[in-house]
């Protein structure tokens, strides 16, 4: 197992190198160049003595963009290898600071949704499979499909309308239960530390609800399908023939086998915890990584985008490795000697 892990890690380093290069090449050839934009701005400022062309050459030299695709990539790689990711062009701060500022909001949101998704979708999937073609099964399936089919912005708008606007009218409350957007209430600065935490937490309720609603369906359907397949297996009949109760058959014999494919999916969702939710974060004005990375990419901010995408690539590779290791934990057939 150790040998396997080390081998996989070494392969991952090679994959990572190429992923970074491809990302750099894509960013390099993007039509929106941060340099061009800035050069044009500078040349139009009053008192500018240089033309846009001259500014561009100077900026390119300053930012290390005059060495071509390969040269530029090697310069970036050299400093990134020792942990120096440079400064973000768009946010005028060091890349790691910008990342540190926004990642924890996205991570908190992602983690809450991940936990809720697992806790709700897996039991529901098992329940639907256990009572296949019953009213429960159909109800669960219909709700799951509604969740899958509706676009995020629509779900978010419906939640905003009902929970942030109408709820106040229906119950005649003095102020809205949830705010429509933002991360802090109006009197945030006056609150105690605990109060501040709960205020932010309250503002995460609607985005979390939106994300869970749209993501729960696929995992639930996946669990149901796998559970049904396992329930038809011969060893489940053996378990029943042993005299085990239905509860034990499903929760012990069948569930352990259902876990095998589910683990692969869950391992693959590790990078999802850090990648942020672009649409939801924008709709609810949450200053998370999804929002930041989107604007960095649009502005052609190479240092930040490179750092962020490399980070996601590492997480993806790590997620796959973890999924493989977990696979061996739950399925003795794939254990290596």
């Amino acid at each position: 197992m150790l040998k396997f892990t080390i081998k996989r890690l070494l392969i991952s380093v090679v994959i990572l190198f190429f992923v970074m290069f491809i990302v750099y090449a894509l960013m390099y050839s993007l039509p929106t160049s941060y340099m061009e934009k800035t050069a044009r701005e500078l040349s139009q400022k009053p008192g500018s003595l240089k033309s846009a062309q001259e500014w561009l050459a100077e900026l390119n030299a300053q930012y290390g963009m005059d060495k071509g695709l390969i040269g530029g990539f090697l310069v970036w790689l050299k400093s990134a290898a020792v942990g120096n990711f440079g400064d973000s062009w768009q946010w005028t701060d060091s890349v790691t600071n910008v990342f540190h500022d926004c990642i924890w909001y996205s991570f908190a949101l992602g983690l809450i949704c991940f936990i809720l998704e697992v806790v709700i979708a897996i039991p529901l999937g098992v329940l639907a499979a256990k009572k296949q073609y019953s009213i429960t099964d159909y109800a669960v399936t219909v709700f799951a499909l509604i969740g899958i089919s509706m676009p995020t912005f629509f779900v978010a708008t419906v939640y905003k309308l009902v929970l942030a606007v109408k709820l106040q009218d229906w119950f005649g409350l003095s102020k809205p239960v949830f705010d429509i957007s933002g991360m802090q209430g109006r009197d945030y600065v006056n609150l105690s530390e605990v109060g501040k935490f709960f205020d932010v937490a309250k503002h995460f309720v609607l985005p979390a609800l939106t994300l869970v609603t749209v993501s729960i369906g696929s995992l639930m359907r996946y669990t149901r399908t796998n559970m049904l397949e396992v329930l038809n297996a011969d060893y489940i009949r053996t378990a029943r023939a042993k005299g085990l109760s239905e509860k034990k058959v499903i929760n012990y014999h069948a569930f352990r086998n259902t876990l095998i494919p589910i683990v692969t999916i869950l391992g693959g969702s590790l990078p999802g915890l850090f990648s942020g939710a672009l649409i939801t974060e924008t709709l609810f004005s949450i200053r998370g990584i999804g929002y930041r990375s989107f604007h960095s990419m649009v502005a052609g901010d190479i240092p930040f985008t490179m750092f962020y995408l490399s980070f996601i690539a590492i997480l993806t590779l790590l997620g796959n490795l973890i999924a493989d290791i977990l696979y061996a934990v739950v399925d003795p057939r794939v254990r290596l000697n």
């Binding site: 297996a233 011969d234 060893y235 352990r256 086998n257 399925d331």
Partner: peptide, 13 residues
């Protein structure tokens, strides 16, 4: 005792 010994035992235990 079932027909298919290859699939009648639970593979994960």
């Amino acid at each position: 005792i079932f027909q298919e010994p290859m699939t009648s035992l639970n593979p994960v235990f």
